[in-house]
Every structure is written in structure tokens, then in C-alpha cells.
Design a protein around this nucleic acid. Structure first.
Length: 670
RNA sequence: GGCCCCGUCGUCUAGUGGUUAGGACACGGCACUUUCACUGCCGCGACACGAGUUCGAAUCUCGUCGGGGUCACCA
């Protein structure tokens, strides 16, 4: 028997991260057994049935390399692969069940049913619907239905047990007495999910139904349909759901917008998306695959991470080639318990893959990011290409995802934006200005501006002056790049070239005085405190943080505002020259680095969130900041009074509950 | 509320009666270093709880607690 697995997304306009994990398991299993992976589109929900909403899903799969053997745009022997085009099959199957006495028409109005359901709920009873025509002869039921079409219900056999041997969960059983007769066909002839799915899975000869555990309870109904249809039930494997980061809640498709926190917004803006884009597009969201594509994650890294989310190869392997995953994938090593999506680890895995990527491909990956961020124009001249190559080389392993290039390279393409904290730390020092001027003079005349030569020359220059190369490094770095961290200084200078380097040194030396009083006013904004990559922004540097903690301040929050007296003394000076040089003072763009912050989709687990309200000069942060701060930092707790946990106690002396999985570790292997 | 599923460091996981409970991310520290990153080393840190079976339980049984999923003429 050839293994056939399937994934059946609804065309929602985006590929959900939880969904793609399910699809991946299906795909891996099929590949492992030389089988076929089928993509079927569950588009029976009219409301969301937009053809254009399918494309992002197909694109996402193709980008990840999860290719389907049968399905949209590929075809196959069981076409069409859209449920919307298969309704005649469901209808035929339903009528067949009607004729065989497995189904019956139900004329009970919906309102009555709802009322009954409510009643049952009130009485704390399970609601089990049995229609009046359950026991009417099949021929009579068919006559009734033809005369007056209505909903068709499946007859559930009473007093029976439906059981599956789930590949992951072991044996799971349900008592049919607790199941109502499910509707399989609406009055207008359209099928319901639990029915259509079975007709399709049977029709497409799916051998293994691998899906998220949230479908486990659907399985009872579906098995009943298989049996009524006389079809062979497939093998089921219910994989644990994917939870929100640091949460025990499912990473849901509902309420996706909540994942677009102020921080995520900042990241999206940094790579060139506007607020309008973010508002209007569902897929600019860290719960989708598209988001990671946008941010420049390598697809292979995402696949590797997702594969490891709920599955393991052994006791230690984290990063492994696709072939290894395929060769070793088995349900036996799929965990039973839900797994929380961990963006930090994903980022790490992505970085591991980036390390392996040849330079040429890194360059190719970085270009679209630079372009979107409007740092480069469309035609990439050979000269520009060479510059980008040098930048990427200089970034080295700082690059884990392509978007990491931005904080490390923006200053190569436009005038540096000075990070106030770095300026304060490195330029507001006794002698810094002097050193800067002298270094500038020296760099005017060095014989070469090649990286290695610069390094040698500058080191030699430092020696007699009792100046540590490290100190010079800091001063020059901030003066020429505006930020305190980045690629190697000598690489930076070399890439900038002599002319630009000197210009920046002169400009920085001039403005140095201005810096003394100016930046303090607004520097409480976390957003521009650190000009570092996506990966290392939020926490203050170790030493600083320790100090903050000791002073009882929240960690992660830096207060560099000057004491009032000092501020006052500076203000006079500042006012005098501000009018003339206002445009020359440091400016922090609202949209670009160095505001680019640490990559933390979904926010930082467990961290106190510094107030973003202070950063009112940061565009867009104000509105959603409070809300997202709550979400980011505060662990999700249910209301203590709302713990749905009394059930078993109350049950205990009531009805016996004979249904439970036996032997938790037991798995039926094939 | 009914039914079903799940419970090993903050997170991902290894573990199928005998282990000092292993690895990875994250975090803290040290070393390397011109910053950061990389790399190496060190550290922090878990079997939800209670009974039972057993010479011996993270592992088997029962119970308790906790978490989640699902209860549609949605998918």
C-alpha cells in the first residue's frame, strides 16, 4: 500500500505557522515511506472563499520546499482538489447513505435544536440529538427527502464504542451514546466539514490522516462516517498543537492581530513596510510563514525548527539536513504534549543555516532587504554589488537572518544616525575629541585604506601615544558609524573609503560639543537606545544592567536623563547653537535603524516591558503600546475563579467514565 | 458543564523499573577579541502532588491538582 498523506488548508490568505508544521509532518511521513503528499483546499466556507487567498499558501509551501504531489496547480488523478468543486461527490455519498438507511432527513428547525441544547447545558447534561425519522424505513425517508429536502443526519449506532489506535496517542475510545446524530448535508445540499473530509479522504485514498490534536474529537464522528460509507478507515495520528510562545494556549488563527505587537511593528517598519501595509495584510504577522520570509529567515532553517517542534531525532541533534529528517521521521518520536513556539530558538536555528550559506547566496538574500528598506536603488551596479559583498563579508556571523544586515549596514548607505547612548559613552570623554582630530589627520595620509593595512597602521599609530587600540576603536566607530556595535571597525572604514571616513570624523568632531547637552532630553526611549541588531537590543549591557538592578530600577530600562543642574547648565549652550545646527544634531529616524531592535517575534518572554509611552516621539508606538505591553510581559493566567477543573470531582461519584486511553506509552506500530 | 487529550529545567526535548535525570535555546559568568557576534569552558535550572505495586518508580496503577482541545446546519 502506498502511503498517501494530505494537508487541507482553507484559503485564508496566509500560511499559518501551526498549519505548516502539520503539513510538514505529513510531508515528512510521506517522503519517508516513498508515498505521496496531497494538498487539498478546504474552501467550502463561502465567506472566506477568495481565489487570491490561496496563492500565499502555495507560495509559502514552495518557498519552504514542501512540494505536493497532487493538488492545486499540479493536478493529479483525483482532481479537482478543491472541496468547492467536489460537492456533487458529497451529495451523492449522502444520498447513498440515505438509501442504505445510514442517514435520515431531519426537519427539526434550528431554533428548536438550539433551545434544546441550551436546556441540556443548563441541566449540565450532554446534549444528544436523535431525529424523529431515525427509525423510519429508508425508502420512506428517501421519499420524504425528495419531496422536501432538508438536513440529512447520520445515524449513530447507539450503545457502541468507536475506537481508534492513534499512532501518537494510543487507543482512544468514544461511547456512541454520548454522540448526537451529526448533520452531514445542509438543506441546500452543501456538505459539512466532518462529512466532506471523510468523503474526500476516502476518495483520495488517504492512508494516514496526520493532523493537529484539536481534531481528535472530530475523529469519532468521522469514523462513524467511514463505517457507514463502508470505507476503510485510515490510520490516524494526532499531533500535539503548537502553543503561543511561553503559553499553554494554542497558537490560534483567531485574533491574529494580537501578535503584531509594537515590537513586531518596529521590525516590519525597519524593513520598509508601512503601517498601512501592516494593517491591511494578514500575513505580516509572526504567526505566519510569510513573516519569516520577509525577515529573511532561511526556509531550511524554518523547516528544521518546525520539524523539531514536537519531534526529535535523538537526545541531542538540533540541526540536521532534510534528508536526515526524512530518513528518520516516525510517529514514535513525536511528543504527546503540546509544544510552545519559541521564536528565540527559531532565530538560532536560522543562524546555524546562515552560517552554512555561501557568500554569493547571502549577498543575493540581503539585496531585497536593502532594497525594501530603500537603502539601495533597483539596478545593482557592479560597483554596488561589490560594496554589498564587502558589507556582507564584514557582517560575518552576525547575520543570522537577512534583516540583520540593516542595523549593521544602514550607515554605509546614508549619513549615520547617532545613537545617543553610544555617543555619550564613547565621545563624551576627556580627550576623545582630540583623539578624533588626530586620528583624522593620520588617516588623511595613510598609504592604503585596505582593511589589513588600516589595522596595522592604526595599531602602530596608537602605540607611542599610550593609547589603547580598543579606545581608539570605540571613538572611531561611533564617529563614523553612529553606533557602538557593528562589524569590525577596519572593515567599516575601508568600505566607507578614505573620503567618507574623513568627512564623518570631521563632522563628528564638530558636533561633539553639541552632543554634550543635546541628546539627553529624549534619550529615555528604549527604541533608539541601542543601535544593535535584531538579536540584541532589549536588555541593557551586563554591567549597566547590574547597576540598574541594584538601584532598584527595572532591568531593561535605562534612564540616562541628566541631573537637573547639569541639564540646566547645558541648555544655555545648546540653545545658542541649536538654531544654527539643529539639523546637524543626531536624529533618529522613526522608520529605520538604529531603531531596529532585537529580533523577538512575540516579544520577550517573562521580561518586564519598559514603558513605551515615554517614547512618544516614536511613531505609532503610543496607540498599541499599553495593550501590547500587557500581552508581552504578563503571563497569561486565567481568573482563579474560572478554573474549569472541578469536573472530575463531581463526576466521580456520578457516572463511571469507562473511556480512557489505556497504557499511555502504548503505540501501535506498523 | 459533558467528552477527549496532555503534565521532565522559563522554552524545545532525551528518558519505556536501577542514570550524579542527558542535550539544545534562553539566561548569568569566564576566556578569546577593536565593539558586537562567533567559538570554547563554567554556572543557574525540571520529573505537578499524593497513595499504591516493587528490593527499587520520572518510568507501571489509582487518585488529586493543573493545563489544553472540543462540544455548530464553521473549517
Amino acid at each position: 500500500m502506498t502511503v498517501r498523506t494530505r494537508f487541507a488548508p482553507s484559503p485564508t490568505g496566509y500560511l499559518h505557522i501551526g498549519g505548516v508544521r502539520t503539513a510538514l509532518f505529513n510531508w515528512l511521513f510521506a517522503k519517508r515511506h516513498g508515498g505521496k503528499f496531497i494538498l487539498r483546499i478546504d474552501d467550502t466556507d463561502d465567506v472566506r472563499n477568495r481565489p487570491e487567498a490561496l496563492q500565499p499558501i502555495l507560495d509559502g509551501f514552495r518557498w519552504l520546499g514542501i512540494l505536493w504531489d497532487e493538488g492545486p496547480e499540479v493536478g493529479g488523478p483525483h482532481a479537482p482538489y478543491f472541496q468547492g468543486q467536489r460537492n456533487h461527490l458529497y451529495r451523492a455519498a449522502a444520498l447513498q447513505l440515505l438509501d442504505s438507511g445510514h442517514a435520515y432527513p431531519c426537519y427539526q428547525p434550528k431554533e428548536v435544536l438550539d433551545a434544546e441544547r441550551k436546556e441540556a447545558e443548563k441541566a449540565k447534561q450532554n446534549y444528544v440529538h436523535r431525529g424523529v425519522h431515525r427509525d423510519t424505513p429508508a425508502a420512506e425517508n428517501r421519499r420524504l427527502y425528495d419531496e422536501k429536502p432538508t438536513t440529512l443526519r447520520l445515524k449513530i449506532t447507539p450503545g457502541a464504542v468507536i475506537a481508534i489506535d492513534d499512532q501518537i496517542r494510543g487507543r482512544v475510545e468514544w461511547q456512541t451514546d454520548l454522540m448526537g446524530d451529526p448533520v452531514i448535508l445542509r438543506p441546500d445540499g452543501r456538505a459539512l466539514y466532518n462529512f466532506a473530509t471523510v468523503v474526500d479522504d476516502a476518495g483520495l485514498e488517504i492512508t494516514h490522516v496526520i493532523r493537529a490534536a484539536e481534531h481528535l474529537t472530530n475523529t469519532a464522528t468521522q469514523v462513524a462516517v467511514y463505517e457507514a460509507l463502508g470505507a476503510k478507515t485510515p490510520i490516524f495520528a494526532h499531533i500535539p498543537v503548537v502553543n503561543e510562545p511561553n503559553s499553554k494556549k494554542k497558537l490560534s488563527k483567531r485574533d491574529m492581530k494580537k501578535f503584531v505587537t509594537a515590537e513586531i511593528r518596529g521590525m516590519l517598519r525597519a524593513i520598509g513596510w508601512t503601517d498601512a501595509d501592516i494593517e491591511s495584510r494578514d500575513d505580516l504577522n509572526p504567526a505566519t510563514v510569510a513573516f519569516y520570509r520577509e525577515m529573511g529567515y532561511l526556509p531550511a532553517g524554518l523547516v528544521n525548527y518546525l520539524a523539531r517542534l514536537g519531534w526529535s531525532l535523538d537526545d541531542k541533534t538540533e540541526v540536521m539536513p532534510l534528508e536526515t529528517m526524512i530518513a528518520n521521521f516516525s510517529f514514535e518520536r513525536v511528543n504527546d504534549a503540546p509544544a510552545s513556539f519559541d521564536p528565540e530558538k527559531l532565530h538560532w536555528v536560522a543562524g546555524e543555516y546562515m552560517k552554512q550559506l555561501p557568500l554569493a547566496e547571502r549577498i543575493a538574500g540581503v539585496i531585497p532587504i536593502l532594497r525594501r528598506a530603500k537603502l539601495i536603488d533597483d539596478p545593482v551596479t557592479p560597483e554596488l554589488q561589490r560594496k554589498i559583498e564587502r558589507i556582507v563579508e564584514a557582517c560575518g556571523e552576525r547575520l543570522k537572518i537577512f534583516a540583520d544586515v540593516l542595523p549593521y549596514s544602514t550607515f554605509f548607505f546614508r549619513a549615520p544616525e547617532y545613537d545617543p547612548a553610544a555617543v555619550k559613552k564613547r565621545l563624551h570623554k576627556e580627550g576623545a575629541k582630540q583623539t578624533l582630530r588626530e586620528a583624522g589627520e593620520f588617516l588623511k595620509a595613510t598609504p592604503s585604506f585596505e582593511t589589513a593595512d588600516l589595522e596595522r597602521e592604526l595599531k602602530a599609530w596608537c602605540e607611542p601615544k599610550q593609547l589603547k587600540i580598543g579606545d581608539l576603536n570605540h571613538i572611531l566607530r561611533v564617529a563614523t558609524t553612529g553606533i557602538g556595535v557593528g562589524p569590525g571597525l577596519f572593515e567599516c572604514l575601508s568600505i566607507l573609503g578614505r573620503e567618507e571616513t574623513l568627512a564623518r570624523i570631521v563632522a563628528a568632531a564638530k558636533r561633539h560639543v553639541l552632543f554634550l547637552g543635546f541628546h539627553h532630553e529624549k534619550s529615555s526611549s528604549r527604541h533608539r537606545r541601542r543601535g544593535r541588531g535584531f538579536r540584541h537590543a532589549l536588555p541593557a549591557p551586563p554591567r549597566q544592567r547590574r547597576r540598574l538592578r541594584m538601584s532598584g530600577r527595572r532591568s531593561g530600562e535605562t534612564d540616562v536623563s541628566p541631573r537637573p543642574a547639569r541639564l540646566a547648565s547645558r541648555l544655555g549652550h545648546h540653545r545658542r547653537i541649536a538654531g544654527v545646527q539643529a539639523q546637524g544634531r543626531h536624529r533618529v529616524s522613526r522608520h529605520q535603524a538604529p531603531g531596529v531592535r532585537r529580533h523577538r517575534p512575540f516579544g520577550r518572554p517573562g521580561a518586564r516591558v519598559p514603558s513605551l509611552r515615554q517614547g512618544s516621539d516614536r511613531a505609532g508606538a503610543g496607540d498599541d503600546a499599553d495593550e501590547s505591553a500587557d500581552r508581552l510581559g504578563v503571563p497569561r493566567h486565567r481568573d482563579p475563579g474560572d478554573r474549569g477543573c472541578h469536573s472530575r470531582q463531581e463526576d466521580h461519584d456520578g457516572e463511571e467514565v469507562p473511556i480512557r486511553r489505556r497504557g499511555r506509552g502504548r503505540r501501535v506500530r506498523r
